[in-house]
């Protein structure tokens, strides 16, 4: 391969690299950047051009600018994958972009940074956050039901306030217990029910248990299988409904 071809391959690598890369000087002057960085600039404002990285940071991520300026060693990693958000115009309205940003000082007057767009991951994390709040709102107000999860062999692996309110068992105590220690039922019947839930998705049976007043109460136990993204069984969600 000729030197020219090697250079071309290097350009191609930098042009299509799926992460924004930038080299800048002590005064923020951009010396090199790849198209992903240009895309960040263009998303902020069509045709936006920042010959100085510090001007960009000052306007959109001032806290990062402060971190860079406070770094007084001649070289070294300033930060690794710290998350920042930038609001940019979208086709309709605006959109919040999230970046994991790493900055290193190579020499006194030479800095490198990478900006990795993690907006999609953040959207998923946000959805999970909303779902957790929604679930928490439900569990905080239930009086006669207990929600928790067990692993594939019936050991409690998550617990919440419903179990504390109805059964009087705190989380640190409940996690690691067998379902058979919480409900009184035949071990074979429980195993059968778990197999059925694994096969059909859901299964239920009746059992008795002891509530927080140490009274024996009867109820319905509903199991629903929990599958991972590949479809393999990871455990069960359990709903105990007191009669």
């Amino acid at each position: 391969m000729s030197q020219e071809q090697e250079l071309e391959r290097l350009y191609e690598f930098l042009y299509v690299a799926p992460v924004a890369l930038v080299e800048f000087g002590q005064d923020g002057t951009i010396r090199m950047a790849n198209p992903r960085l240009a895309q960040v600039f263009n998303r902020i404002s069509m045709g936006a051009y920042f010959p100085n990285f510090f001007d960009f940071l000052d306007k959109y991520i001032p806290s990062l600018l402060a971190v860079i300026k406070a770094f007084d060693a001649d070289n070294g990693e300033i930060q690794e994958n710290v998350r920042y958000s930038v609001d940019v115009p979208a086709e309709q309205g605006s959109e919040r972009l999230w970046f994991d940003i790493t900055v290193a000082r190579q020499e006194q007057d030479r800095y490198f940074a990478s900006l990795n767009n993690v907006t999609q991951q953040m959207k998923l994390a946000e959805q999970n956050h909303y779902r957790d709040q929604w679930l928490s709102a439900i569990t905080n107000h239930l009086q006669h039901h207990v929600f928790f999860t067990i692993d594939a062999v019936g050991i409690v692996d998550s617990w919440n306030r419903t179990g504390e309110v109805v059964l009087g068992t705190i989380s640190t105590h409940a996690i690691g217990m067998s379902l058979l220690e919480i409900v009184e039922c035949d071990a074979n019947e429980l195993e059968k029910c778990m197999s059925l839930a694994a096969k059909r998705g859901v299964a239920s049976f009746s059992a008795t248990m002891t509530d927080r007043h140490h009274q024996r109460v009867s109820g319905q136990i509903n199991l629903q299988s929990i599958l991972d993204m590949k479809g393999d069984l990871q455990g069960y969600s359990v709903v105990l409904s007191l009669s």
Partner: peptide, 12 residues
């Protein structure tokens, strides 16, 4: 037509 930023040979 539009204004844009390219990184021609890595120079914005």
């Amino acid at each position: 037509s539009l204004d844009y930023t390219f990184t021609l040979k890595m120079a914005p």
